[in-house]
Design a protein around this nucleic acid. Sequence first.
DNA 1: GCGAAATCTTTACACTGTCAATATTGCGTC
DNA 2: GACGCAATATTGACAGTGTAAAGATTTCGC
Lengths: 240, 240
Amino acid sequence: MAKSDTKSETVRSPRVPKRTSSASRPARRPASAKTETPYHHGALREALLQAAERVLERDGLAGLTLRAVAREAGVSHAAPTHHFGDLTGLVSELAAIGFRQFNAAMASACDSATTPLSRALARPKAYVAYAQAHPGMYGLMFRTERLDYARPSLHEAAESSFAGLANAIGAMRQEQISGDALTLDQGAAIARAWSMVHGFTMLLLDGRLEDILERLPAGTTAEQLLEAILKSTLATKFPA
Amino acid sequence: MAKSDTKSETVRSPRVPKRTSSASRPARRPASAKTETPYHHGALREALLQAAERVLERDGLAGLTLRAVAREAGVSHAAPTHHFGDLTGLVSELAAIGFRQFNAAMASACDSATTPLSRALARPKAYVAYAQAHPGMYGLMFRTERLDYARPSLHEAAESSFAGLANAIGAMRQEQISGDALTLDQGAAIARAWSMVHGFTMLLLDGRLEDILERLPAGTTAEQLLEAILKSTLATKFPA
DNA sequence: GCGAAATCTTTACACTGTCAATATTGCGTC
DNA sequence: GACGCAATATTGACAGTGTAAAGATTTCGC
């Protein structure tokens, strides 16, 4: 299965045309048999993205390579290049998918909230829950330097995610958050909420909250710790 | 300067002993001339760590490779292996240095605070300031999966950093934080402070706060945004 | 002084991203 | 339907990476 690519040939082949027009390959594909893998995949771009997500969640960020994705999808190692340009392209498109998944999860969580307090808690809890359910994706979205935000799909998905956050903060403050200008108070409220939830998520995924969790009363979960944090933060708004 | 290592030799050399005892090398080193680079470096380990920090801050995390560090230090590409085992080892030792630098900066910042409010603000501000001054180091310490916390130097330095945070929170709550057990309230306070500052720092370094900053009144800096966040958080403790 | 251990270099190999050249197929146009 | 071109996929090559093994050199303990 393509274990070694560079065979270090004895002589540097001087680009001889060879002209092996489908007769040199012994019997790889009997000329348009639908059951065999055709030369043209048909929907390789989507297949590659799905393969990439599988590889990411299975092998982590370090295992997410162009060649690994190509292997997972069963195509040659250079096939992804044609669809995504380079690794940055593939990673950026996958991150855009992650942001859309994430946005959908957040919207769904907000819908199912009833009381004001539960509305205030639903969003951050869903945030952390998404990251725990898709740690690879969350890491791809937030800890990769290799993202190209100039790509429209990624830019739009990330922008939409930010807008959702800003709107939620605005609703909690009972203000209309304008798209153009923010007061320092508004900006601070948004940055504070985002920083706290993002920071908590990163520390949790990195295992750095273990030191705290194991010192808490036995059996305390990360979710309970998060809820305690949120309630202490919201204490002024929702006095017990 | 060792531009290409794998020359793809024509014939696979079958390990012939060759016996070239210092006569085959023409005149590389005239037998113990102190001005020339000696075979034994003497303090290569420290030199490698300093070279690694230079490479990290110059070329970023992606540029921090074993071979790049070796080039920077002027030794062969496999020299670091002997001192650090593998890339994880080098990166972990460098991260330990980062944590010690960081701890020193935090301690210094706390000393120079006078009023209770300034004491409460000094630590997070110094935290963000360190990350901005050493973005490569901070990224190494907090966004690398390739850290081996089993290494005593790294474990100890990171532990000390956490202890400093816990003590600062305890002082603010006017409680004695025990090393063994925490109440849920205490754990939540520590995790909340750490999450917020860490999250703010990561978002800032990643440029994700730009969307907010450019919507704030013209000229607002990240430091001012941070201060607004901190003051709103501390409003209950230090009413204006 | 001498052998052993520590240190550093050399060599090799599997893996990676990326580019160039080639092969194959689909599709619009006659 | 046949032709030609563009899109798609493969093959091959190359520079770079980490890492392991083996050789060269120096230092150190005795």
